[in-house]
Structures are given as C-alpha cells and as structure tokens.
Design a protein around this nucleic acid. Structure first.
Lengths: 290, 290
DNA sequence: TTTCATATGTTAGCTGGACTTTCATATGGA
DNA sequence: TCCATATGAAAGTCCAGCTAACATATGAAA
C-alpha cells in the first residue's frame, strides 16, 4: 500500500471530523485539539490534493462537492477501522484471564486460596496453566504469569507477590523426636533435592551441610519433592511460602531459614494496560499477601 | 467519533503493513521506516488492546486469530481511505485549470496569446473566468488568478508575470498630427478615467496634469476605456503591458511613462502543490514574458 | 447601529510521539 | 559452521503536530 501520495492520517481524521461537525471549532473539541490544528490539517490536504474541500459559510463551513465525496469515503474507512479495533478489544476483555504458573506454586499456594477468589468474583473466569517452563507470554496468549526468580525478565513488568527464602524443612515422622534447630541436627538424615534447583543445593552446602556423609536423592518436580518431604522421605530446602500452612500446623518443622534479597514469586505481564479483569485478579493476588 | 480508546493511526498502519508483509523488516521497507519503528507500534497496539496480534514464527511473524481479524478490518478501512483520496486527487488533476483574471487583462494580453498555448498543449483544458473582483480562490474553486497589484495577498503565493506602470496614451486620430511627448502637449485634450482606478488619476495629477482645464470623462470598465481610447475618444493612463501591441504598431502613442516598484500583474495561487496541468500553464505564462 | 459571543485565519514557537541508532539474539539456508 | 536476515530492546534524536496568541469575520441580540 503506497502512502507517499496520501495526506497524513491525522490530517484526514481532522478533515473528517470537521466535515461531520460543520465547524473547525466543534471538530477540535471532538478531537481534543485547538481549532487551529484542525484548520491547518484541512488546508494542508487541500494544498496537496489541489482542490477545495471546506469553505467558509457564515460562521461555519460548507463542504464542496469534492469535500462531500472525500468525507464519505473517510467516514466509511475510519468507521471500519474503529469498529475492527473495538471488536478485538471487546473480545480480549471478555475472555478468561490467562495465567501461567509453576505447578508447585499452583498446588501449594494458589489453589488453596482460589476458593476465596471464586466466592468474591463469581463471574470472572480464569484460565490457569501450570507449566514449569518460562513461556513467551505474548506468543502463547497469556495475560500474566506467576514466576519464581529475581524479577528481572526483559521486556516485562514484574511485581513482587511473595518474597522467597531458603528454608530447611523436615517432617516430624523423619525426626522421631530428635531436636532439629541446626543443620548439624539433620546432617545425617536422608536429603531430597529437586533436579533443576541447583541453587538450593549450592546454598545448603555453603551453609555447612556436608554432602559426602549423607544420602541425597533427586526428584523431578517440586510437587513430588514436597509430597515426599511431607511423608518423611527426607530433609529438603524449599521456599517457606509454599509450606507456610504445613509449618504453622506442625506438619513440617522449619530447621533454619535465610532470606534472599530480590528473590521471590512475581506477578509478571507485558507492559501496558491489563484488561479490567486481569487487573482485578492481580489486585486480589496482591491482597492475599498484604 | 471517539478516538480515545483507539491506538494511534500510525501504529495501526504499521500493523496492517506487517500483517500483510509477514515481517517487520518488509513492512518497514514499504513504509520507509526502520523495523524497530514497526515493531514498537505493533507491541504498543497489543499492550493497549490486551491481546497478541503478531508472534514470532521462524524468521518472520505469524498472525494470531485476533491479528487476522484486525488486519482484515484495517486493510478494508485503509483501502477505503486511500481510494477516496486518490479519486479526489485524480478529479482535481483532470479538470480544466480554473483561472480567474481581470477582463481587461484577458482581452488585451491573454486572449491574443492563448492560441499559442492551445497549439502547444491541445489536450490541456483551461477555464478562464473574467472577473473584476478579487475572489476567494479556495471558496470559489480556482487553481490560480492573474491579479493586478503589489503581490502581497495574505495566505497566497504570488509570482510576478508583468511589471506594471502608468503610461499616458492617446490615439493618433485624437492628436491630429500634434506633438505628444509631454503632459503639456495633451493637457487640453479630453481625458478618460476608469471609475475605480483612482490611483491613476492621482498619479497623473501629481505628474502635472491640471484637471480643472480639461474635459474628463469616467467609464465603468478598463475594457470600455481601452476601446474608447483606441477610437480617439480621449487620453488616458493605462499599463503599457495591456497596450504593448497598440504602441508597437502605432495605433496608440505613448506620451509618458513611469514604473512603479512592485506593481504588476501577478500569478497568484494558494500555497502547496499545483496540479501538473496548472504548473504547465503557469510555466507557459511566465515564458511569455521572459 | 453597537455589542458580544463564536467562528476562521494566520504565524511563531514548543514538545513528545514517532522514529533512528545501536547492539543483542534468533532463525534457517548454504 | 558460517552468514544473511530476521526480531527484540533500549537510549537518544527530531520534526509533525500541536498550542498560543492575535487578527478578522459573522450573525444574533440589545
């Protein structure tokens, strides 16, 4: 589509508004600009096309024949454009909020709380996608994600939901009444690590755990790890946020804990306006940790 | 038409081009901008509408369902706009060049030369409107005017065609062989003045004519005045340009002459591009006095 | 006829939207 | 593996689009 011989779209829009409104002043109010801006645009179009479109008539303006014809095709064209845009925006606003979230966070933190959301917002649909991968939100059509990390994903806005830490936990059934207040207390017990969570292993070693003198097993997912830890299958390092209820109820014992600056579960989304529904969900999420 | 919730038209055009071209790079070439400009526009629209439109696919891009639908309505809308604009521009280019010109200039200078123009440009139509009034070119649909004055009409471009002067002329049939080289030589002959041309009368009085001792008649139009002067009805003050042929052939005698700085016959038109045809005519006009 | 509100016309000056520049990364054909 | 061409992202530039200001025109009301 060759635009080189077409006046600027801003000018054409100004002309269409003036043609419809009958005065530059009224068109200016509609477009939130001054009458001078509208007048300049219209005269620029006339100069470029070599014909008059709007001429002075009393206190207002009258369309020439050419002006009538141009205004008609512009009105149709701009009508089509704005209708198409609004249809897309309406569809986007109506569909369920699409969220991608790590499975373990979904199972251990989000799902237990979601009944509260459903009670508060019965008509607001959510589409939750548990996925361990960091997916491309735009490519895969997600409104937002809840991600674990430092909050610095390029091109995305990230807002901290829950701070994360490293917490050593063990089940009472594993401890068998033994004290569990230092790493030394659990040094000789079996240990469990998530395959990909190398940093947890690195941290606990740096904190004094001697990996050589104890049995350490690896499991594939955080969900499986938590299941095994709860069953007394071993000691592990997790974010306390995921096991807050377990610790509070005594189902798991927190041996030691250390905060990591910046580390946390973040609400992540592309920059710009979220839909009203997505905003509502985000607000509710943030309200759960205030 | 409420534009507040509509992305910028430049952005929508960029998106439509990218949707059609399949890559930001190709769309950028079409629009004469960089790929980054197109990419930024598209992502801005996605942010505002809350949905993906174009996602990465190999080395290019693929439209999402929403993207397809939006691209279709934008293509229709922009097509309507550009077709409408081109139709108006084509009409303006095709119609005869509309010129408003003073009747006396038309009769005495232009019409005698126009045969040369018609011979040189047989297919180029002209629409000549003799009018003594200074008309509003845009309101009345004129491409240009040939006007007598100082060339300083606001909001218009003016280019000098012929310098004007005050020239005292008389017919030989009036002079009856008497010398006619000074105002004194024609002081006691009858004089003619155009009703509205007060400055000619003012000038000749300031140049020494004693209005009290001679018969002075007024006529309504310059054309009538020239007709009477040629018939020996009286002495008058005219622009020599209008009677150059008469003077050259001896049909009129130039008694005295005085140039006036800036005064002249000007080609006048609104600023901006004249149509190709109007430019051709203007060029031809200017060629007649080079 | 005068006054007043509202319109257009015009030009000089300002600024942020639109773009460029630059560099990093991704993709696919040779 | 190399290379050409694509997108992604962010910092910086600049002029199209606008405002401000003032002049002039129009028409209704007093």
């Amino acid at each position: 589509m060759d635009w080189r011989d077409i006046p600027s779209l801003a000018a054409l829009r100004a002309f269409e508004a003036a043609a419809r409104a009958g005065t530059f002043s009224e068109a200016a109010r509609e477009l939130n600009v001054t009458h001078a801006a509208v007048a300049q645009h219209v005269r620029a179009i006339e100069a470029q096309l070599g014909t008059s479109l709007l001429v002075r008539a009393g206190r207002g303006l009258a369309l020439t024949d050419a002006g009538h014809r141009l205004a008609a095709s512009l009105s149709d064209g701009f009508g089509m454009i704005t209708s198409g845009v609004r249809a897309i925006a309406a569809d986007a606003a109506d569909r369920p909020v699409a969220i991608t979230v790590t499975p373990s966070f979904a199972e251990n933190w989000l799902m237990p709380r979601l009944a509260g959301f459903w009670a508060a917002y019965p008509g607001l649909g959510l589409s939750l996608n548990p996925d361990m991968d960091v997916v491309d939100l735009r490519r895969d059509g997600f409104d937002m994600a809840i991600r674990y990390g430092m909050g610095d994903w390029p091109g995305l806005e990230a807002e901290l939901l829950i701070e994360a830490d490293y917490t050593v936990v063990a089940a009472p059934s594993l401890l068998l009444g033994r004290p569990a207040q230092t790493l030394a207390d659990v040094q000789n017990l079996p240990w469990l690590f998530e395959v990909v969570h190398r940093e947890a292993r690195r941290w606990v070693t740096a904190s004094g755990l001697d990996m050589a003198c104890c049995q350490a097993n690896e499991v594939a997912t955080l969900s499986m790890l938590l299941s095994a830890v709860r069953a007394g299958g071993g000691v592990s390092v997790v974010s306390s946020a995921l096991v807050a209820d377990d610790i509070a109820s005594g189902k798991l014992i927190a041996v030691m804990s250390e905060r990591r600056e910046g580390l946390g579960y973040y609400i992540v989304h592309p920059p710009g306006t979220l839909s009203a529904r997505a905003k509502t969900f985000k607000k509710w999420l943030l309200g759960q940790t205030a």
